[in-house]
Design a protein around this nucleic acid. Sequence first.
DNA 1: CGTCCACAGGAATGACGGGCGG
DNA 2: CCGCCCGTCATTCCTGTGGACG
Length: 418
Amino acid sequence: MRAEVKWILSNPEIIDEVFEKFVNNCDIFINREVLRHDYLPERLPHREKTIRRLAETVAPVLKSARCSNAFLYGKTGTGKTAVTKYVLNRLEIKAKQFEASVRICYVNCRLAGTKYRVFSKLCQSLGGHIPFTGLSVGEVFDRLRLCLESVSIIFVVVLDEIDALIKARGDNILYELLRINEMLTDSKVSLVGISNDLRLKEFLDSRVLSSLSEEEIVFKPYDAEELRNILADRAQLAFYDTALTDGALSLCAALAAAEHGDARRALDLLRVAGEVAERYGAEFIEEEHVRDAERHIEHNRTVEALRTLTLHLKLVLLSLFHLGQADVQRGTTGEIYEVYNDLCGELGTGPLTQRRVSTLINELDSLGLLNAKVISRGRYGRTKRIRLEVARPLLKKVFSEDSRVKDLVGYKLKGSSC
DNA sequence: CGTCCACAGGAATGACGGGCGG
DNA sequence: CCGCCCGTCATTCCTGTGGACG
């Protein structure tokens, strides 16, 4: 069964297509770029309502009035960033037409990482120069204020993934940005906050929350049918017309729908499935290629995560590895710390404190390499029950490539009291 | 019903490598 | 070169706590 995407081609087009296939030596892809999640498509299916709402929210900017702050939230891959960029790109174009002095700055807070770097990005987008370190945060903030005071503009600031910054450093940055308007006479700042975490509101001061969510837009997960449409849309641009089977398309949609309706995931699956099919020299992308892609993506992610761990994170994970037997792989903080101490001794490295190891365990948890759950064993105290989430052979293989820890992979536990 | 285990996890502080402007 | 500030990693000290045991 082929995808129902039908193209009617004129004769010269058919010839072109055949030649192009031959030149590119590829029967599958026309353009794989359109399946990357940073690709901004011409249209965003199933987001008409949110596009309208955001557009209505920012529209006053065209009359050089400050628009309401907006707070967008929804899980990953629900189109928040795409919708925002989509609307604001067009806003910028319209603003030029109407000669409204509008500046838009998009900052990804997770990538920026700190308040300093966020402020410095905002300054730079206004033409100010900020060294990447060396100034106090207050100084950078002042420069931002001066930049804004020297001109008369509406400055729309998009803070993507603010949840990452706020959870790490508090809502201080929002407070300062929301208050900057009080210090400005001609220019005005409007904020668009984007959060992946629905519970972010709990972390916010009530004053910050109320001014940030003057306008609140919730992004619901896509269901399987909607994902199908999105994928079909992109597939038209990405693949030759017969290259994608209907089954493969539906499977991508279904798998991503099961995982909280993540369009990003769906697109990744489709792209990798295409690459898998290409590698096999297959004529079409079929369901088995999607299954392959699923394993492939998962595998790559863990290997990459394992590889880039710091020494002590590796040691902690290795301790858990040694603690577990072939089938059961669990331990408590105390048990892990004991083994960890032994491993450090073996290496001649000074061990970190248990307090520190406890946070390392949490870091590994959020990386998905292990699963830690706080439990109480009553009389026998309160601890974390920790399970390894990595296949043992995989961990063994990746760690054996690291010269620092490779000798510890085959380490035998001393006095393993059974 | 209180105790007390084995930690959880917050807060304060410090060491360190780096860059700034003067 | 100095004095200052940055972000990161780590330590120290601390208060908090679910529930089995007595």
